[in-house]
Write a protein that binds this DNA or RNA. Sequence first.
DNA 1: CCCTAGATGCAT
DNA 2: TGCATCTAGGGG
Length: 242
Amino acid sequence: MSGDTGLRPATRADLSATPLECAPTLLGAHLVTTIDGERTTLRVTEVEAYHGRGTGDRPDPGSHARMGKTNRNATMWGEPGHLYVYLSHGIHSCVNVVCGPEGLAGGVLLRAGEIVEGADAATRRRLERGGVVRASVDLARGPGRLGDAVGLRHPQHDGIDAITGEPRGGAVARLLLPTALVAGIATGPRVGVAGVAGTDAFPWRMWIAGDPTVSPFRWGRGAREAAQAGPARRTGADAVLD
DNA sequence: CCCTAGATGCAT
DNA sequence: TGCATCTAGGGG
């Protein structure tokens, strides 16, 4: 079994490796946000890695960075440890931790987590944005809900520094990493990502196996096509690494 | 330009 | 399944 690992403040060096390498180290991490004096702590339970051209050993067709630098995704090219906050479907603000060296695009999407402090504030933020809260495990279950719960929004908080904790847009964010890799990390295809390369080439979703706050798997366009050609997958899980 | 599709969530 | 509603790419 896994003993409780400790936590320590993240450094830029911790996040200067490729997103795929950084992703598992972010499971169990804490993202602490303070907005209008209200503090919320998120324990990260599910992530996805996204590379840019030139990062890692192959191009990533699912990444916002795949077509090069734009106004929207510029934060992905910046220093590691900042947060890339983007608008999804014109509605949801989703949060990535920028990874890899400055000048090379990359990030790890925080897909789900457990609110371990500030559940009242997180609940209110979600309700204010038109969400519904049925159970506390659902507060940050899914990237859109997670963004609402921690209070980070596009565009005002895009690029906020989670290493120094420098305020941006009225918010402060800090990232704490586990001192050891958490046990029971499951891997599988990313959710909702279309792409000609399909599922099997990019099992870049990672989560803490069995954790109730992990978001439900949903077939993406590319994932469905790939699955039809290969073995059936119901849960999206490829493997559990201990 | 206009159309489509998207790293989503929610009601129907 | 459709909608909310913003960004970006691809095709006229």
